[in-house]
């Protein structure tokens, strides 16, 4: 499976390892609307970090700010010891699913990969191998299932073996089985590439056994903590804006709405 050094977990958030992404007193806003105020945290290199927040909390905006596409109103964002700006190498992204124009669905996925990475045939092939997507890539995009399509989009984030993966809701629209598979796949790839993963999601259950840390946005505050800290009823209520319940049993923990 993996030949990366050792089987031990990636460094915990807050450990001494240098940060892949560092926020220092960052405020993010759209127009007059502030989404995030005075956020400070560092994502440890090699960590799998879940990003949570209600619809409109600012998850996508936060990821775009790491890419340098949203300028912070205050504070500094550092990616691998250099200020965030567009066009940095070594970052793979999976944008939040958008409506594809009908004509795009008639293309093979490989065409999309080649458009984004011209002249990088071998790197594209390697990325497709990582997700076991060589055969899928030549089929019509519109003829693929949601899970298959998501695997190919993931492949495109992996071209060039990036050190940081920004994955915006890769589980949206997938059935529970496919969700578990995608999470396991991403976790395996992260170890293989020794990459840091920032993974946004609405349902935290599929990530509970996998993530090293949770980053969450609630009431314009951003917190980074161990996943266990997220599992307190009051924290979850604030996150989802609804009463939540944590159920544990058979060695597992599940979060469900309380009703």
């Amino acid at each position: 499976m993996t030949d990366s050094p050792g089987e031990e977990r990636a460094p915990q958030a807050g450990a001494a390892a240098p940060a892949a992404v560092e926020f220092a007193g960052v405020t993010l806003a759209h127009g007059r609307r502030r989404l995030v105020e005075d956020a400070s945290f560092g994502l440890a290199q090699g960590a799998f970090v879940g990003l949570f927040g209600a619809n409109g909390a600012g998850k996508t905006t936060l990821m775009r700010s790491v890419l340098g596409l949203e300028r912070p109103r205050a504070g500094r964002i550092t990616v691998f010891d250099a200020p965030a700006r567009p066009g940095r190498a070594g970052i793979g992204i999976l944008p939040q699913q958008r409506q594809w124009p009908a004509a795009t669905l008639d293309l093979a996925a490989i065409a999309l990969l080649e458009a984004a990475h011209p002249g990088q045939g071998p790197a594209i092939g390697a990325a497709l191998d990582l997700v076991d997507g060589q055969a899928l890539a030549r089929r019509r995009l519109g003829a693929l299932s949601g899970g298959e399509r998501q695997r190919l989009l993931l492949a495109q984030a992996l071209v060039g073996a990036p050190r940081l993966l920004l994955l915006d809701e890769p589980l949206a629209g997938l059935d529970p089985g496919a969700q578990v598979q995608i999470v396991a796949l991403i976790d395996r790839i992260r170890r293989q590439l020794e990459a840091t993963v920032l993974f946004s999601a609405h349902d935290l259950n599929p990530l509970l056994g996998v993530m090293d840390a949770a980053l969450w946005i609630a009431a314009r505050r951003v917190r980074l903590d161990a996943p266990a800290a997220l599992l307190r009823a009051d924290v979850l209520d604030g996150l989802y804006g609804a009463r939540m319940q944590v159920i544990s049993g058979e060695g597992r923990v599940v979060v469900v709405p309380a009703c």
Partner: peptide
Amino acid sequence: HRTLLFVILQPDLAEAQG
């Protein structure tokens, strides 16, 4: 044409690439 195809097919990625 290369840049154009990139922008048409992958606008988010193109933007992130600067």
